[in-house]
Amino acid sequence: MRASHDVRARRAGGANSERRRRQTLIAWLFTAPFVVVFAVFMILPIASSIGFSFTDMTAQDIQSPFNVDFVGFEQYANVLSDPEFQNAAWVTALFVIVGIPVTVALGLGLALALNSGIRRLRPIYRVAFYAPVVTSVVAVSVIWRYILARDGLLNMVLALVGVEGPDWLNSTTWALPSLILMAVWRNTGTLMIIFLAGLQAIPTDVREAAEMDGAGRWRRLRSVTLPLLRPTMLLGSVLISVGYLQFFEEAFVMTQGGPLSSTLSMTYYTFNTFGFGDFAKASAASYIMFVVIAAVSILQFRLLRRST
């Protein structure tokens, strides 16, 4: 009895596994182009990045990347003890810590305003506030360098109200805030759209119930809307911080990392180290960045999973 059952199961399993084997072959044929490109240009670089970071590889070793010496964690120690890197980490941290709250606050304000029952110009506002997101950072950096020049638009406007603005990008005090200002301008639209979607997902009956209970506008915002929007806000800020952690192009075009390295970010440091031909050290620096970004991304992934 038992035996015959097993045989039957095996026979059915045999047909199934035959089908599965066929499907496996077809599936891997479908994925083959992706797998090849992905293996050579993604997996291999990720693996060799770790590999390089434990060697003394330089630009001279390109033709024989295996002919290098293993140096253990020396490159990591070099990077972490490099005052230029410590400065870059500080600059990047400031960029994120100041930039994120400002971007989130503005994006939230815009989303709330656009969701507050105004109909007439809503599509126009949405397009206008989102437009900077689609533009090339290099191109907008050129524009902002022109705006922030000593006689630029910003100082012209400030002069109208009697304020004499500084030479924004050539001041160690103002250069980084200027780059943050531009990043806020370029990224607020993303958060506006994400927050708008979040707001529209809040069921209207929840809000109506609060209204029936006599909660005023402000009270409803604080006690109903914002708590319900929290997952969206966390997700949005993490999403933006992954981008902010890698900021580079703005500094490359607007300040070249200056004045006095006051805008030299971690990506810029990695790029410069690479430019000096110090591939191993650059790999170590990029891996340190990766760990930071991965930590932030894992947080993002967890939030995503919780919110869906």
Partner: peptide
């Protein structure tokens, strides 16, 4: 997992591979 890997992590070895 690789969705999260930013370009700054891979560009150095990518350069070596492409040069090779």
């Amino acid at each position: 997992v690789t969705i999260m890997v930013p370009g700054v992590v891979t560009f150095v070895p990518l350069f070596v591979i492409v040069a090779k």
